[in-house]
Design a protein around this nucleic acid. Structure first.
Lengths: 207, 207
DNA sequence: GCCGAAGGTGAGCGGGCGCTTAGCGTGGCC
DNA sequence: GGCCACGCTAAGCGCCCGCTCACCTTCGGC
């Protein structure tokens, strides 16, 4: 199955910081299961089974099923923020930085859509405290993109009616890639990234 | 709670065709519960309770919990298709028709986000047959929007690199409104509709 | 060679799930 | 007034859920 290969392959690097090995295997198994079926439809027995362990083994490394989702969500959001921050802080015009931010953010959502789906769509399954923590990271993502657009407007590069609304629309467009993208579809992550960078530059009226 | 008011008020009209009354109350209760908690996290006891009935009453009107989701999904998609079709077939330039389609489609996703959330995000919880039926409706929605964009390109009104990809992006942008829109936020559905119509016209390079 | 810590297992608990069934009240029809 | 069809409820079945616990290995330090 493509999801397993992908998560076991390229995506796994993102989880390198998780130790010990058994805890990482469980986390990766949980990402796959949550992405396929959703958090509530996934059983702890399924997660443990995918990691090649007994159901009880999960509770040696994680207190609850929700802690797994919380850890996945935080690591994923930190990665997303890092991507946007890198693009935002590079040298270049606002248009170049925005195109870079959008294309790399979209590539992440398309290529790592297993992770991105969990990160973007299972937020409501977290408890209040964990959700608040993740929402703070999300606002930082928002601020990075808004910063680039504000720079472009200030420099006369962009022509935008509503900076806040346009920022939201740009992020929304990128995030929804995780919902519809499929490796069986006609596009590669790179192609979608390039197409979307062009569309977003049009949205902000780049000269 | 705003969701209850909204569904009991303006949105209810959409369910007028559902009879008898008890079946309609159960359907509306299910829409609210699925939108708040997700399909898998919603119990049949919760649905029946919201409709003011005992758990067993649900099974007089619906064979299974999944049948409720199926019915909601089909009615919702038919409504979405009708909105796009109306805009697509009106008189006017391609730009006017596209702006109309986007603004009314977005208004529906924002104003009726309780319904829209279920319709757009709970598709995977349906069984294979029901999902296939709904996906056919979704492809028809896609075709309506693509038709307008193709008309605009043919008439020299639009400047689009990738018609299929741009169509997908436009629909994706509109659909994701159901994920983030909140009545407590700074915009009304009308304002988001107008903003998005402008953004989409920019995306297709309308003259 | 013994020991304790770390990491794992099999069995199973309390509970809530989707759904069923036996029976009850009630309104329309003759 | 007698009767039945319909809409509904109270009770509960069988199942599987998240999670626990008693016990079992393995292995480095001495």
């Amino acid at each position: 199955m493509s999801t397993a290969e992908e998560t076991a392959g390229g995506e796994t690097s993102a989880w390198g910081e998780v130790t010990p090995d058994a805890a990482r295997r469980l986390l990766i198994a949980a990402v796959e299961a949550f992405a396929e079926r959703g958090y509530h439809a996934t059983t702890t027995r399924d997660i443990a089974g995918r990691a090649g362990m007994s159901p009880a083994a999960l509770y040696i490394h994680y207190k609850t099923k929700e802690e797994l989702l919380h850890r996945i969500s935080r690591i994923g959001h930190e990665k997303a923020l890092e991507i946007l921050r890198t693009a935002s802080r590079r040298e270049g015009t606002a248009a170049e930085r925005l195109a870079d931010a959008v294309s790399s953010f979209v590539r992440w959502h398309a290529g790592g859509r297993t992770t991105a789906r969990v990160v973007q769509y299972e937020l409501d399954s977290l408890g209040p405290d964990a959700r608040a923590e993740i929402l703070a990271l999300r606002r930082q993502c928002d601020a990075e993109v808004r910063g680039i657009i504000e720079d472009g407007v200030a420099a006369g590069e962009f022509d935008v009616l509503d900076v806040k609304g346009t920022t939201l629309a740009v992020l929304s467009l990128c995030i929804d890639v995780a919902r519809w993208f499929s490796v069986d579809g006609p596009w590669t992550p790179d192609e979608v990234g390039a197409l979307y960078a062009d569309l977003v530059l049009r949205m902000v009226g780049a000269k």
